[in-house]
């Protein structure tokens, strides 16, 4: 009997720290002895960079393009930190073609080639670009791919907007056997108010928070050296944060359909927080003044 592979998809607005978080979860789980695979689903193709020493790896789509018939899975799966299997879906150059279709093509290739049977990972993490802008980027949450979905979000309104869009996507596909939601990963949390905002958002959308990740310079330093925090500063407090998050996610059994806000509701909700948000902006700017 083939073992049950845990497949999770991690979404979030561009630049919010999705790849950083995903890679650190992968690294922590790998460290803990699990067989881990990470699939970057973003045409930028840099999801797994901190797992491969800061280097880019050839993508599935680039390889497919060169020779569909002759392509083997070994050509697109690379060993990263601690034996993590790293895959990048890839995509077209900016401004041409269809990146969404690219994600579909790449994920279908992995399924057809029985990659998961062959590599037998305990967990597969899909790191997916921002908003669920089209059917292509919804591929990982559709039937037969991921089981659980997480979103990385800061207390920034645009990040929350992206999370709400993701909820809409999940709700849509949930009736057809699509993936269910398992929690919001609150990232870049420095102030109490940021926590409050995200807590209120999850309350409004009947969702939950999977963990809080504070903003930290350790992460930045590790990234600049092409590494995850787990690899670069294994003894840091931040590494412990990621280890806890990874463990929680691995053991998380919660799966449900969240209740996204309609756009008017979302706007009203954001307005109700506007004073707090402005205060936060000031505090943040103060925080980063040199």
């Amino acid at each position: 009997m083939t073992k049950k592979i845990k497949e999770i998809a991690i979404y979030g607005k561009g630049g919010i720290g999705k790849s950083t978080t995903t890679s650190n979860i992968s690294a922590a789980l790998s460290d803990a002895g699990y067989n881990v695979m990470q699939v970057g689903c973003d045409p930028k193709s840099d999801s797994t960079n901190t797992l491969t020493g800061g280097k880019s790896i050839p993508t599935v789509l680039d390889s497919l393009r060169k020779g569909r018939g002759a392509l083997k899975v070994e050509d697109v799966i690379f060993e990263g930190f601690n034996g993590i299997h790293c895959v990048e879906a890839g995509g077209p150059e900016p401004g041409v073609g269809c990146a969404g279709r690219g994600i579909i093509t790449a994920v279908e290739f992995l399924k057809q080639e029985n990659v998961y049977e062959e590599y037998s990972p305990d967990i597969v993490l899909y790191d997916v670009l921002g908003d669920v802008v089209c059917g292509g980027f919804a591929m990982p949450i559709r039937e037969g791919v991921a089981d659980q979905v997480y979103t990385v979000s800061s207390a920034d309104f645009m990040a929350i907007y992206a999370a709400n869009n993701l909820f809409k996507g999940i709700k849509k596909y949930s009736t057809g056997g699509g993936a269910l939601f398992s929690g919001l990963i609150a990232n870049s949390i420095t102030f109490g108010a940021q926590k409050e905002i995200l807590e209120d958002f999850t309350k409004q959308t009947k969702s939950t928070i999977a963990g809080f990740v504070p903003r930290s310079l350790t992460v930045t330093q590790a990234e600049l050296s092409g590494k995850t925090t787990i690899e670069a500063s294994p003894d840091s407090e931040q590494a412990d944060v990621y280890r806890k998050l990874a463990k929680d996610i691995y053991n998380n059994k919660e799966e449900y359909v969240p209740s996204p806000l309609e756009s008017d509701e979302l706007k009203d909700w954001a307005e109700s927080w506007s004073d707090k948000l402005l205060d936060l902006k000031k505090q943040e700017e103060g925080d980063f003044k040199i």
Binding site: L64, P92, V96, G97, C98, R101
Partner: peptide, 10 residues
Amino acid sequence: GEDDVVFGAK
């Protein structure tokens, strides 16, 4: 074909 859709077909 599929590749043309993904990468553009100029």
